[in-house]
Design a protein around this nucleic acid. Structure first.
Lengths: 214, 214
DNA sequence: TAGATTGTTAATCGATTAACAATC
DNA sequence: TAGATTGTTAATCGATTAACAATC
């Protein structure tokens, strides 16, 4: 375990936490009650040393000779990532991608509840998407307040992404997940993370070129 | 410019290339003919030193006092990332996410052409999605061969992701973009990159917790 | 020319890995 | 107990930043 109170956990470590979480869930599903740093490392392609270093940031200890208790590890990781409370999100943009996200029920299982979807196109406003109805983007601020929204997911075209991010921040949203193929910036204490499929494709393509030359 | 032939460019650098590319495109759209390392750094939140280091890996030089020629930079980055030839992709899984990807025409503009979409659910096979018809997953190998597919995008549930990745590799696909919330592994020389929206949400949530404590 | 910006080297910073005593 | 696996320190490795001569 170690320093529960001392923080500044590197971003690279936080980036591996979701992976530990999934892998632990999978191992539990297979009936494992204990997971070792070596087992996680093998599954994820890290070294066991990295895994132990990473997990030592959590307020939680493994047990020598056995490893980490899977159920406990899962719980501590969830808590650390702020998933236990349930994060409340909105989707900005009701195009193909926004609509797909709105109907993607896997998010709920992981602690992310999507409360609303917005668009500024009058043709889309009012349309039903799964359980939700597309709302006018002008009504964002009221919804953020009444629904206590934590996170905005940006699924609009690249040119509109920064303006939409600004409106989310102005409405009081602290966390932004950007899916548009562009770079956006937000003032502190707001936080942005990118989940850009195009970027993934481009990096993949670059990596393929490297691999074919090596 | 420097060593065009010498490789092993760090993954972190390749990860920034798409960002340079987008930013350069945007600046060109605004009419800029030259971009400086400082301008890119400011827009993306890096230091100019990092930008210059990164771009020095490319077979291309800036010009003292002016910066980098935007059109040329865009072209060299595209080429480096293997986008100029046009990458040919298939989508595995015709659920909400897979269907949204199939209709997402932004990919084509960035050099990724989606040639087919597969599912193993007979109810979905034959269904029309945009320009494509959902095919039976058993026909993957033939399609990969006849369509010269480079990339497979995995948009199936987590439990099925590894098996689908294996089938892609067996069919001869070298690059895999994993969108499922799980970790998959492939044998060399195949390459995987992840574009997991759930992971992005979890990292964001963790970063929000850190930011609120700081 | 004078000044701005590159390319590159060297210094710093941070992250990963190795190693091993502690321990269950 | 003996052996496996943790937690942590120290060493290594790699990535970022600073600095500055070269140059257009």
């Amino acid at each position: 375990m170690s320093k529960p109170g001392e923080r500044k956990i590197p971003r690279s470590v936080i980036g591996r936490f979701p992976q530990y979480l999934w892998e632990t869930q999978e191992l539990r599903d297979e009936g494992q009650e204990w997971v070792s740093s070596q087992a996680l490392a093998d599954a994820l392609g890290f070294t066991s040393s990295t895994v132990r270093q990473d997990l030592s940031h959590l307020d939680f200890s493994g047990v020598a000779k056995r490893g980490y208790e899977a159920a406990k590890l899962q719980q501590v990781l969830s808590e650390f990532l702020g998933l236990d409370a349930g994060r409340r999100a909105v989707i900005m943009g009701a195009g193909n991608l926004g609509r797909a996200l709105a109907q993607h029920n896997a998010f709920a299982r992981q602690g992310f509840v999507i409360r609303a979807i917005f668009d500024n196109n009058p043709k889309l406003v009012g349309r039903k998407i799964g359980q939700l109805v597309v709302q006018d983007a002008r009504d964002l601020e009221a919804a953020v307040r009444s629904e206590k929204i934590d996170i905005g997911m940006i699924a609009v075209p690249a040119q509109a992404a920064q303006a939409v991010a600004d409106s989310l921040v102005a409405a009081g949203v602290r966390g932004i997940l950007n899916l548009a193929p562009t770079n956006i910036r937000v003032p502190k204490p707001a936080v942005v993370r990118n989940a850009r499929i195009s970027a993934g494709l481009m990096e993949l393509s670059g990596a393929m070129k490297m691999a074919s030359q090596a």
